[in-house]
Design a protein around this nucleic acid. Structure first.
Ligand SMILES: NC(=O)c1ccc[n+]([C@@H]2O[C@H](COP(=O)([O-])OP(=O)(O)OC[C@H]3O[C@@H](n4cnc5c(N)ncnc54)[C@H](O)[C@@H]3O)[C@@H](O)[C@H]2O)c1
Ligand SMILES: NC(=O)c1ccc[n+]([C@@H]2O[C@H](COP(=O)([O-])OP(=O)(O)OC[C@H]3O[C@@H](n4cnc5c(N)ncnc54)[C@H](O)[C@@H]3O)[C@@H](O)[C@H]2O)c1
Lengths: 209, 209
DNA sequence: CACACTTTGTGAAATAATTCACAAGGTGTC
DNA sequence: GACACCTTGTGAATTATTTCACAAAGTGTG
């Protein structure tokens, strides 16, 4: 029964979640794959196919019951119980991320931040303490932190990665443009803004939609 | 002769560029698709196939001459002459982006920032002035700005998008999790950190590499 | 309850992307 | 210059993803 689920499907699941969460807040009861697809500018077939990888959540004739579907997707994505997140590297970007309120509603709670600079250590952002790197192990284990947003300078990325993996971090969102080397069992993913800009630039020069 | 070039290929081109640029700085002369692929943890076939969409840049027996290839890719991506960029919405994230030095070396120059808040207007970050939204048209036209990093609150994203498109912006990198509505001829692309986190969370629960 | 309409879930078909495999060149050594 | 060894560029094969198309079910109206 183990059919492999495309990465693309998982990514789209995140998008569905955002939209459905919003709809559930609005009090929407049921929605058809058609309406959801319209909202997201995609095809209904795609929506149904994606959901069908994980089960049968809909009802023929009427569609999907939004509150239930939100729950189901949250479960699939592992968002039901909230995930504890650390920000490592409290520079410009790290500070912005730590200050951002938008992650919380999705169940991602920044519960600690880390830096090497004595100027940063001991400061609080939104009530969250900035620890020194020597407390990495202790704090990550104590607070049971699973994910890290990695915003340190490129030169130290690999070294810091090793340290946080050793401390028990299981997933890393990496903002430097350095390819991360992580052991099996740890998932890393890159946010490469420079590459995004370059792609945009390409499409500007060719100007095909 | 118009074979369609996959989006994925363009994205990877950005990655090759970053790596090759770095290598050229190091003084590397030639590199084989194999070595480049190893560096990026991918297959040589993929590298060659991607490059072959745009021309024949290599030499059999020895590989690609790095300085030339960097040039060629820069040209393909439209990076030769530099692109002027504006940051719109100088909150936490916008400020971090405007302060970032890493875009410049790639030919992306932040030459203006915008906000509505009187507290932000008139301030300078890295020597770049923050203008009010009423100056949008004037400044974008005067400075010939083509791209925008959009970091305003979700509620006003669509409204602000319309304004900057009207002012002449041709490409937008959108950081809100709101799907942008842009006219044909304008390219928009989303950086959705929340979705990235959700995907990571999924892979953590299933823990398949 | 019959019938006209919706909508899901899913194999099968169509498209798209990646990987293979190899001919055609190039390099270097003796 | 002959031989052993690399490396590119690219059709063809393979694999992945999307789209199609339709049976099976649910809704609602009179
Ligand atoms: N700021 C941006 O908009 C932006 C955009 C794209 C990519 N990035 C990338 O994100 C990363 C951070 O960017 P930034 O602009 O916030 O840089 P920054 O210099 O403002 O912040 C880096 C922080 O990391 C801390 N640090 C340094 N060494 C450390 C270590 N060994 N352990 C823990 N902390 C350490 C520093 O004290 C500093 O606070 C960089 O890799 C950069 O390339 C940033
Ligand atoms: N900060 C983050 O780490 C983060 C992460 C993910 C997504 N985002 C998204 O990025 C956007 C910005 O986030 P932020 O944390 O920087 O928010 P912020 O509130 O700190 O900044 C928003 C800025 O936009 C300005 N603004 C408001 N209305 C405007 C208008 N009509 N025209 C021009 N400027 C206007 C505000 O004055 C403010 O300076 C949001 O859409 C947010 O959802 C932020």
């Amino acid at each position: 029964m183990k059919k492999k689920i495309p990465d693309k499907t998982v990514q789209r699941l995140s998008v569905y979640y955002r939209c459905l969460y919003f709809l559930s807040q609005q009090g929407t009861g049921e929605i058809s794959s058609k309406s959801l697809a319209d909202l997201l500018e995609m095809k209904p077939d795609q929506v149904r196919k994606d959901l069908s990888y994980f089960g049968k959540f809909g009802k023929r004739g009427s569609g999907y019951y939004v509150p239930d579907l939100v729950q189901q997707i949250a479960k699939i994505l592992g968002l039901e119980h909230g995930r504890k997140v650390a920000v490592v590297g409290m520079g410009n970007l790290g500070t912005a991320l730590a200050a951002y309120k938008g992650f919380e509603v999705l169940g991602f709670n920044v519960v600690a931040t880390f830096d090497v600079s004595p100027q940063k250590i001991g400061k609080k952002i939104r009530g969250v303490m900035c620890y020194g790197m020597k407390d990495l192990n202790k704090v990550i284990k104590e607070k049971n932190i699973e994910m890290a947003l990695l915003t340190v300078p490129p030169e130290v990325v690999q070294e810091v990665t090793s340290a946080i993996v050793a401390a028990g971090i299981k997933a890393i969102l990496n903002f430097s443009s350095v390819t991360l080397n992580v052991p099996k069992g740890v998932k890393a993913s890159d946010v490469d803004l420079a590459s995004e800009l370059k792609s945009l630039s390409y499409f500007m020069t060719t100007s095909n939609r």
